[in-house]
Nucleic acid binder design. Sequence first.
RNA 1: GGAGAGGUGGCCGAGUGGUUGAAGGCGCACGCCUGGAAAGCGUGUGGCUAUCGUAAGGUGGCUCAAGAGUUCGAAUCUCUUCCUCUCCGCCA
Length: 426
Amino acid sequence: MFDIKLIRERIDLVKSGLTAKNVKIDLDKVVDKDKILRGIQSKIDDLRNEKNKASDEIGLLIKNKADAKDKIAAMKEIGQKISELEPEAKLLQDEVNKFLLSIPNLPHESVPVGSPEKNKVVRSWGEEKKFNFTPKNHIELAESLDIIDFKRATKITGSHFILYKGAGARLERALYNFFLDVHTSEHGYTEVFTPFVVNRDSMTGTGQLPKMEEDMYRLEADDLFLIPTAEVPVTNIHRDEILNEEDLPILYTAYSPCFRREAGSYGKDTRGLVRVHQFDKVEMVKFVKPENSYDELEKLVNNAEKICQLLDIPYRVLMLATGDLSFAAAKCYDLEAHAAGLNKWLEISSCSNFEDFQARRANIKFKGKETKKPTLVHTLNGSGLALARTMIAILENNQTKEGDIIIPKVLRPYMNGLEKISKKEV
RNA sequence: GGAGAGGUGGCCGAGUGGUUGAAGGCGCACGCCUGGAAAGCGUGUGGCUAUCGUAAGGUGGCUCAAGAGUUCGAAUCUCUUCCUCUCCGCCA
């Protein structure tokens, strides 16, 4: 939800922010509607005031067994006037709200302005893996090792779904367990395990609705949605709550599968695990005081980076330009892992500060000694990490000439000590 | 899924049409008391929004699960939806 007050008071600022995000919206229209609405509303409020006062008088008259007929008749008229104005006010209010829900967040001033080509590499870590043979891609590797069955996944459900098998399934499970363990024991997050199906209010709270409904899997009979990311249920944990200032920051981490219809987004770079309709992810979510949110964003990125480092995955950190920012984000860093087989940089994490954008939609505030009035929190979230693409990096970067996969050391305890995934002896 | 009972402020809990934003209690904050604390006593204690004010704050509207309706007037009456509890059924 966009802040109507900001539009009223700083429309120039809003306009330039939206232009940077390459969004064309006629703000003047909503300014007019808002003005008219407030005019009508204050008329209604005055009439109601009159009504309320008279009601008390009528009550008193009746109590004293006096005649209240004239008063009652007069009140009937006022009631009439009110009910004439109300539908108009409601209509305007709905229009204004709908409009405000459709306006994306403004970018932070530190974000480079422009199209995705302006994305800035802020740092990188590790060396791209080199081999003295031609590295295979993850599809070839996984199929020859029989750890992913793409064909049968398609039979079971459809294209772009995954069936992990044997050591592949075990590796998947090892990865998200490892991620959760690092975030809970080293980074101070509290683990949560949420519903993977959410209602419309939750989807609106984090900003997926109303604009992105087409990209979501929806359960029509119940009007519920499969979550596209754990961000949705986790951020909505505190929807419609006023938190205690001393409880902030609140840090959660959660494993969940993520369901994405990816409507109309097939391309030729989407083979194998690169772009799928269901993948696993461990998400980190933060609720923080506004003044700390940009420090918390840096920490969040570092938490995701730490995972890559422990797995020895070479990566780079991109600061997204205004034109590449998502609907709700004010600032966002992407982590891209290098996958040696595809020889590509793959987005495996996206860490964003939403400032108070989601908090306003989801009505999440805090109150404390410093802040007597309830104040919107800032929310952040980041992947730590997204699994399908991390799997690509692991498979492709750790392959041997024979087509085996060396298991990263940190994962071996999760793999029952297994050091290497090899072809089964025939 | 069937039958019944409910959803009131941070919590418990009164309230079945008229000065009820809502008794009472708990909790919390501040003050008094105390060497200090407890107890006791006193005072205060929701949110959203509009408007006036530099501000503290004032004034008004909304808010008793959500939405619609009846009425001059609704926490109280009617309808719909959601949720909780008890019993039955089904089930991992």
